[in-house]
Design a binder for these strands. Structure first.
Lengths: 339, 339
DNA sequence: ATCTTCTACCAAAGCGCTTTGAAAATTTGA
DNA sequence: TCAAATTTTCAAAGCGCTTTGGTAGAAGAT
């Protein structure tokens, strides 16, 4: 059943039927209803390819991920993806996922744009300086960033308040008497890692505590790395009394490290982490329950997709910028410093 | 730059240019080279929508995942996805990801087929009885299963030798003197879980050991659930001396449970797990290193995509069935049973 | 030299939709 | 009542490709 047949069936022109279905005003309500009902009854579905060809719009957005980079290592990404996919499915927009080899990333963006394969992009894990933002901005194609960047270009984004979250978490630890606080952070080039460090440093500065660079670690966010780096920090002669971790996975490694050293978490060493709300690794079920700053990444994906659709529909990037607040959840993994 | 312009530029007809680029024989080698070079130089890229409309093929395959089901909980899925995406990117085939709400799953398949949105599907985590297989087979649309199912229908698949892997792992434990072996398995309705149990039971039977149903647990594969169920098993009066886990994540939970009870892994209790090769949680870096049956799920995704493309190109499902072997890696988490 | 087969190319139709420009039908104004 | 304005509908063009059904020209057969 295609447009032509449907129109013939109704004794109308294709024009009228098309307009009736697409909500154009120059169709009487009577015919519109008649057309809608017939379309429903006959299960008419417009051919996507034909529509794309005619309109130039693809009804598709893409996420490009480099095979070799950390996205793949990162369970957070899947949860984020789930949120994105949910919103897009709601609006019947297609989500295409594209893997690229090491150095093809920018070229892949360029190709998809040139071939008119997509209406827009979701760009995740932005770097402090991010070429993708510059490129997409130059190409003048809609995109939304999951996070922010220093790269100068007008772009839409959804970020969480990384700086605020880590400032408050650090302040909490300081208020509990901690002075040597280790920071297990994400990779240095990632924007969110920088913001989190900034929050941490701001809180220390506000309390007149001199930061110790040796207490700050930048690395990938896996359990193993958390274990290794926490072990190293806790083995220092002047052992930190608290650890601030950029993900539950890192904290999980830190728990293991502390246990290995016979340290009791929440007593000998306090641990607090940022929790992206991963469904398979829950902070509250760890032993002891892990205090966190929390902002569900899946909900972020959903909202981000909304922003992208708005961007595609012509809203300017300036109107599509959001910073989600972050909650601080106190649990037994942190405690007053023993004197 | 479109076909028409390219043809005009070359002084050829669109027909000839199209044929030259698509490798049809009725073009002289001389012109073909000339056309190819010009296309390259002028950066001609065929419009995907137009091609789809003309050919009826979309150059797209889809993976549908239910928002509420366990795929999302499952980091294995992301790694699998990465493998699929890599192969598809190599062949410039688009991968679309589609989320569905609770009961829309089958309807979503139907819609995508009816709207001619995709050339084929990848179906993951098959159930023992799987309606999707029946539906897609009835709709006569290409698809490949990641795993197998009891549902009667001719289908292509890539599976790993779950039965063999768990049979050998169990045999190894038996050989080391273990008699009470706990099985931390995936959810009961999943086909691979059934196969793994079958392997486990076969090994016990081969050594004349009566299986204890109380030692078999079916549940989701998360760290927390591994912890809970392993705790329960290890608290039994007749404590199992070995645990066989369906994923590293489960084993990870089991490690925690054992430690809580003051048991030394590899001595008081042996642990072996199936390892899908997740990059962020490595069996070999656990303490003690975790013995595993291993089959990288990412490579599986890549191969599966190859099979699907072959299926789309008309190969019959019967020719597209593979069972990948599984390696058994001995590490310190297993040891001879103490007498 | 004529007729038949290939080879290498082409014009035009068609895929199923949207959209332009115009016509028909209806309502409004005086 | 008739022209003007408005509403509703339509025919046809166009999106950029593939593919059908050709036609020239070269090669081979007689």
């Amino acid at each position: 059943m295609n447009l032509k047949e449907l129109a013939a069936h109704l004794g109308l022109s294709q024009t009228t039927v098309s307009r009736a279905l697409n909500g154009y005003p120059e169709v009487s309500e009577a015919t519109r209803t008649r057309v809608r009902e017939a379309a429903e009854r006959l299960e008419y579905r417009p051919n996507a390819a034909a529509r794309r060809l005619a309109t130039g719009r693809t009804g598709t957005v893409a996420i490009i991920f480099p095979s070799e980079r950390s996205l793949l290592l990162d369970p957070h990404f899947l949860d984020f993806l789930a949120g994105v996919a949910e919103k897009l499915a709601d609006d019947d927009v297609e989500l295409t996922l594209r893997a690229t080899r090491r150095n093809d990333e920018l070229e892949t963006y360029r190709r998809l744009v040139r071939n008119r394969r997509v209406d827009g992009f979701i760009v995740s894990s932005p770097l402090i300086e991010d070429e993708r933002v510059r490129l997409l901005s130059d190409l003048d194609v809609p995109f939304v960033l999951h996070g922010r960047t220093d790269t100068q270009a007008p772009y839409a984004y959804l970020d969480i308040d990384n700086e605020g979250a880590f400032r408050r978490a650090t302040e909490l630890l300081v208020d509990l008497g901690h002075r040597r606080i280790g920071l297990l952070n994400g990779k240095r080039e990632l924007n969110f890692a920088r913001d989190r460090e900034a929050g941490y440093l701001a809180a220390l500065a506000a309390h007149g505590i001199a930061p110790d660079p040796g207490l700050i670690v930048n690395a990938a966010m896996t359990e193993e790395i958390g274990y290794r780096n926490a072990s190293a920090l806790l083995a220092r002669p002047q052992r930190p009394t608290a650890l601030l971790a950029a993900s539950v996975l890192l904290a999980f490694g830190a728990y293991r490290a502390a246990r290995d050293l016979g340290l009791v978490i929440g007593k000998d060493v306090s641990v607090i982490a940022h929790d992206d709300g991963l469904p398979f690794l829950k902070a509250e079920t760890l032993d002891p329950p892990l205090a966190t700053t929390v902002s569900p990444i899946r909900a972020g994906g959903y909202r981000l997709a909304e922003l992208l659709l708005a961007r595609i529909n012509g809203n300017p990037p300036e109107d599509l910028r959001e910073v989600a607040p972050v909650d601080l959840v106190f649990r037994a993994s942190i405690g007053r410093m023993l004197t």
